[in-house]
């Protein structure tokens, strides 16, 4: 399941909804991305996440389906926020439930790596010098390439 939302999320609540009393699940792995207060030596007061409504949901749904085809998962969840966020705020949640830990770890890692290079979001960081757009990083492409086969 995927959600794109302005509001914050509660990790504990989301995980208990994900397991939902399903006793086939042997383990759940989650990743939560947070807003940092530093980037490239600049102090960040806030960031605004812009996205492409429609394409975002389409891309996240495709990524989620791919993970469910590649690994044995009981359930998976991607929540990505947009709008203005401050240091310490949650940005993204990826969670996977599986009978076995390897599948849960791998699928969760895959999902965050893929969404970083595929989901149409852009970060505008606010610093003392004003706003600047975060540039895509080669290391994210390298991280994604690991999952290509």
């Amino acid at each position: 399941m995927i959600r794109v939302q302005l509001e914050d999320f509660d990790l504990g609540l989301e995980l208990s909804k994900l397991s939902n009393g399903n006793h086939q699940i042997g383990g759940m792995v989650s990743f939560v991305g947070l807003v940092r207060d530093m980037a490239a030596g600049d102090s960040i007061s806030a960031m605004t996440l812009e996205h492409y409504p429609g394409m975002t949901e389409k891309q996240l749904t495709e990524i989620d389906q791919t993970a469910n085809e590649r690994w044995e998962l009981n359930a998976s969840l991607i929540i990505h926020r947009y709008g203005r966020l401050e240091p310490g705020d949650n940005i993204v949640l990826v969670a996977c439930a599986s009978p076995h830990r390897e599948s849960a770890f791998d699928a969760c890692h895959f999902l965050i790596d893929w969404l970083k290079t595929k989901a149409p979001f852009w970060k505008l960081e606010e610093t003392r010098d004003g706003g600047h757009w975060v540039e895509a990083q080669t290391k994210d492409d390298v991280a994604m390439a690991r999952w290509m086969k």
Partner: peptide, 10 residues
Amino acid sequence: VAFFPPVTGG
């Protein structure tokens, strides 16, 4: 048709 920079979400 949409034009945008390389994405930076996550």
